[in-house]
Design a protein around this nucleic acid. Structure first.
Lengths: 217, 217
DNA sequence: TAAGTAAAAAATATATGATATTATTGATTT
DNA sequence: AAATCAATAATATCATATATTTTTTACTTA
């Protein structure tokens, strides 16, 4: 029962999305089909499908008759994204804390453990694992809200998270101890089933990250 | 300076989306490329681009190697959608009431006027204008939150609104006087710059609609 | 008969080439 | 420098072709 190999379409989608999030494809740059064809070794049909999907997700801007561009960035857009992330993730966290069972707690603890290990490493100056660290960050935040009991909410949140992530990657700098403390605060409050404290830590966490990123832009 | 004719792609997108929202394409049904080709007179490539976009928006479910389906409906999904609409629209309404200028007020009043005219008509038993009525409903709700000052929020909201709309169309019945009163309440509170009352009316409005639809399902 | 399996048919995923339309560029003129 | 127009490039769309995968049908065997 091996997982079937991903189709050209879905793997191209992931690759382009990743390249946009991690800045390999610069904000605002033109996405010429001919270039992409070489770069991702896929046909025009496949690429157009992919770009249309990414456009719907907001990573690509499609201009009728003029083709596709990497969605540009701006401070205002970042502020909007951060604010939406707060709105969605706070809400999901509250629901999750109210609904989560022991299984959920276990997953949260596990996710935090992995993230924390990585944070210690990064604070020691090791920056080789940026991507792993970001993945663990995502997994921790996701684990916290996973018991919110709304697929639609989780799906919306993950889209916003990815957009937020792009801005973080754009000006990459590690917030270190502060961010780690906020994560710890969220963990403790979640396990203590204290939604007010947990959401307070979350809100600070996102807003501090926002300030940090805005300053670096 | 005439608006340029829409491309085959975008008009196909709108048509299929509309057919899903208004139930012409039944929930869960298979979307065979060959059939769609005839029905919308577009090529497979164009259709696949369209379906991929709709999949990203959640109106179509794409199953790898097995093609596309109209996203199924369920009571739980509807509850999630309604809850998200409350979350997003409440938030946007608060921001909008805080930011809106006189221009905004004018647009809100105008949108409500048109909606109200239609509501009177519907209460008199005329059901021929369902689609116009629904458009005016959308325009009124949009006008209220338009001053929220966040493109991202508006865009998220419009996607959720459309999903909610599909459920309403699915079991179409007019809530009549009650809904009209809630609209009036929102209008008055918005003009009075009373966010608490306005969001209360909004929340009731959506939740009553939800109950109404759930009962009819 | 039920269950399983192999062959056939249908549908999808992907690629390519062709055409019409639209944008962009560069040269030319005013 | 601005405006114009031809030449070039790029996109949007479609029709076809092929490989793969699903689904259906027919057939076999327990």
């Amino acid at each position: 029962m091996a997982k079937q190999p991903p189709t050209v379409g879905s793997s191209t989608f992931e690759r382009i999305k990743r390249d946009i999030i991690f800045g390999t494809l610069a904000p605002g740059s033109k996405l010429k089909l001919d270039d992409l064809k070489k770069r991702y070794s896929a046909s025009v049909s496949t690429l157009r499908e992919t770009l249309n999907r990414l456009a719907s997700d907001g990573f690509v801007a499609a201009q009728e008759q003029r083709g596709f561009f990497v969605t540009p960035v701006s401070k205002d857009d970042l502020r909007e994204i951060a604010s939406l992330r707060v709105l969605l993730e706070r809400h999901a966290l509250r629901l999750s804390i109210a609904n989560g069972d022991t299984e959920w707690e276990g997953n949260v603890v596990a996710a935090h453990h992995k993230l924390h290990r990585m944070e210690v490493l990064m604070q020691a100056g090791d920056e080789t694992e940026k991507e792993t660290w970001k993945r663990y960050d995502w997994e921790f935040h996701l684990s916290l809200i996973r018991a919110c009991n709304s697929q639609n909410l989780l799906s919306l949140h993950s889209k916003i998270y990815d957009k937020y992530l792009r801005y973080q990657m754009l000006v990459f700098t590690f917030r270190g101890e502060a961010a780690a403390a906020e994560h710890q605060g969220m963990l403790d409050a979640a396990l203590a089933r204290d939604p007010d404290t947990a959401t307070k830590f979350l809100e600070d966490h996102i807003n501090n990250g926002l300030t940090h990123t805005l300053e670096a832009m």
